[in-house]
Design a protein around this nucleic acid. Structure first.
Lengths: 219, 219, 219, 219
DNA sequence: CATGAATGAGGCTTCATTCAT
DNA sequence: TATGAATGAAGCCTCATTCAT
């Protein structure tokens, strides 16, 4: 919950702050991310930031919201469209997710960090819930599919949901380690990733969803 | 690379230091982990630690080596045994991995942290390699299997390796979020995890390997 | 000396500011009292306050004047009335003083703070004079009484004045520590003190003045 | 509870720190007293102070203990000696108290501050008790005297105790405002007060105890 | 070889005040 | 006149590392 003050500052300044804050939090642990470095990068006074946000934590959760909303914009375009099958829809969502990651390295990097922020006592359980929520959402989707009789009878839906989520999260690592994309560098320069053909992506996503279709679906 | 001095100290002292250092690094980011807290917990002089290790980073990589070796002891017992099939072997390895996690929360926690320590400039690329190495190892194994004609013709081995590794890493989260195990608490008390029946574990591992068998294997 | 601007603002706003400013200064040291908190509590612009008062110090001395005047209203009602004896008058004044304390916890709290604000270099000697003035006033009163031959010949009037003033100031502590009144809480809620019977107060005041009569007066 | 580290540093350094810390806390509110200023005055690193004391509060309570012990040394020399009467003893104690104030302006100044430190939420009730404790001690003494039949039958012992304590505390103000002693300056220079004749002091103390004798004692 | 005191940079946050709008 | 965003110094505290003992 940023201050009203923050709402009112110029769009440029907002974006300046947003960019550098995301950068810092995308490249660092919550605890290791430095408010001082953010304001220095922005060229604003340290006191200013505290007129926009209550404290570091407040800033953090604001960034979280921004990133989630940005990602939602990608995903929701898919959610409401009809698809031939559950797995077609999943593929489309997955693709949008990757597109989001590639086009918004800052936001993607920030969200990626959230998943590993289990340690921090300061942030508390607000984050513990984060991955759990993803798990529950996918479990529900699978339950629906299961009740329609489209999934294997003996499929453990919790494990299936875990697999789907876990593989989705890891996509960034895949792109980094296998495709050679340097997200860290992209975050530093706030540069979207180019040069990854849709074909390559489709190949990856189809491959993976193919497994889910075959393994989870009714033979 | 710990100093010669470190090699010479008593086993007890070594283990004391090891325990508290692992605890601190398992519960905290590299940067957030505090050398001061470690020595305080150990009750040893701060200067001593700097006679055993060059610096924080040196200590960190020593711990890394220790944990990897401990985990290897679990895994290698499997590696050299013959199994009926590749996936049987995989299952056995996976089970050993989980056993390691449950029996050694400190070491497991430390290793888990490594995977998310991609950011730190101080640690450099030494960690980036970590996950990549896992990927390569599994890719090689799959290549072997592929050449024996046991895998699908159109299987993308890189993707397959990524899936295997990614799902292995996530196991801790699964145990935490789905099975309700509180690793943080176990790390704090250095208590192995009890109460998780072999049956449960087998169910999980079989489920997952079943997925791979079906997805990757020749129909 | 508040600015002309301040004189012109609405009575409501004045009182709003007065209330919250007194609250802050009654609960905190001069230095620890926060201008920011005052304006936040009032919901007025920070700049506004600086158009009403030159600075924190200016506000402080304005509050001081207000409180002193309010207390004077209590005391002066007694000063001009005739009493049978000096000590009767003293009793009446004392009672009025306590009544002021109980009915105006904000103002009372502020004045109480003044007495302990001897340290502040910023406020300078303006406060040092405060208690001294009280001393002188009472000394004068005693001198008058002395000249009328109603006090003991060997009474040290300076010491006597000191005792009277010192015991008057401490009344707040007495009420707090012995009668169990929580002034801090009353200040926070701006609630006058109820539930202290006139009988109790009279007992206390009579008791104390009785000593003065007996000890200071001519046997 | 200072650290063991503090116990071990050289006496000179201890005294250096003690002097400047007392100075700062004697001249300022707890909250307004600045740790930074203390270390700067001492010429030591800020980090050092935090190796001696857990935090500001810890330092504060250490100073409190030191001052109370120093004052006890003055008072206890009286406590165990026999005196002709309760009031003779009181006189002696009072004199010792003043002697302590005059000879140790730093310690006296610190203790004086404690009495007005009712505001601070951080210090909590540890201080609220302070004045109350004095009250209770004197009340007990008076109770003893009362039971021996030496006090007026209708004396309210709580009020009497309050008067004694309140007048004792105020002594510093008396010396400052009436005798013209500049404690602030003495604190800054850590100079004991000279030039106040024993005769003057005796006059003051006798006057005051005379008051109590007459007021409280059986006629 | 062990010790642990010293360091000072950096962490987050609050402050009184100014000044352009 | 009212506003409130901007400022940067100062607040307390923790850190990894060094070095004299």
């Amino acid at each position: 919950m940023p201050t009203i003050t923050f709402e009112k500052i110029s769009q440029e300044k907002k974006e300046l702050l947003l960019r550098h804050a995301l950068q810092e939090f995308a490249l660092n642990d919550y605890q290791s991310a430095s408010v001082s470095k953010i304001v220095k990068a922005c060229g604003i006074a340290k006191g200013s930031l505290y007129q926009y946000f209550e404290n570091k934590k407040d800033l953090y959760f604001y960034l979280k919201k921004v990133c989630e909303e940005k990602k939602s914009n990608y995903i929701f375009s898919v959610l409401n469209k009809p698809y031939d099958s559950f797995w077609d829809k999943y593929e489309a969502m997955y693709l949008e997710g990757i597109k989001f990651d590639l086009e918004n390295p800052l936001h993607s990097g920030f969200l990626y960090q959230i998943y590993q922020e289990k340690n921090n006592e300061d942030l508390g359980d607000l984050l513990k819930a984060h991955k759990q929520k993803s798990l529950e959402i996918f479990e529900q989707l699978l339950v629906g599919e299961y009740q329609k009789g489209r999934l294997k009878k003996d499929l453990d839906l919790k494990i299936a949901a875990f697999m789907i989520v876990q593989l989705s999260i890891g996509i960034v690592d895949y792109l980094e380690l296998v495709c050679g994309i340097d997200f860290r560098s992209n975050i530093k320069n706030n540069q979207p990733v180019f040069g990854l053909s849709d074909k390559e992506l489709l190949h990856f996503v189809r491959h993976m969803s193919g497994f889910f279709r075959k393994s989870f679906g009714k033979s």
